[in-house]
């Protein structure tokens, strides 16, 4: 096993650990804001580590560039959607709390 394989394994393992933490937060945290917090922080880091592992594993610059693009678009899309989700959650919260008539 070369040092690259070891690095790939280490990166994959750390990435999956972050994914696990993010998913656990999504399931266990009480409200939308803290769930989003868990997802956006932990999963973005997890994705970056897994992408890095994949790029190292293939060992080709062209593939690495493509993986970097995939990572970039995934991070941008995740950031945008979490902003939108957070805003909608806040709107729902202010709309429903005063009269408390949520179904």
């Amino acid at each position: 096993m070369s040092w690259i394989d070891l690095a790939v394994l280490a990166l994959l393992g750390t990435g999956l650990a972050f994914y696990g933490a993010g998913s656990l937060g999504l399931l266990r945290f009480p409200d939308t804001a803290s769930r989003l917090h868990a997802l956006t922080k932990a999963d973005n880091l997890g994705l970056g580590l897994v992408a890095l592992a994949a790029a190292l594993h293939w060992g080709s610059l062209a593939v690495a560039a493509k993986i970097a693009l995939v990572w970039l678009f995934a991070v941008i899309a995740a950031g945008i959607t979490s902003q939108l989700l957070a805003r909608q959650a806040r709107l729902d919260g202010t709309r429903s709390h005063p009269d408390g008539d949520r179904p």
Partner: peptide, 13 residues
């Protein structure tokens, strides 16, 4: 999107 800030975020994306 009806909400202004959300529309701007989605719009720049």
């Amino acid at each position: 999107m009806a909400d202004g800030p959300m529309r701007r975020v989605a719009g720049s994306f």
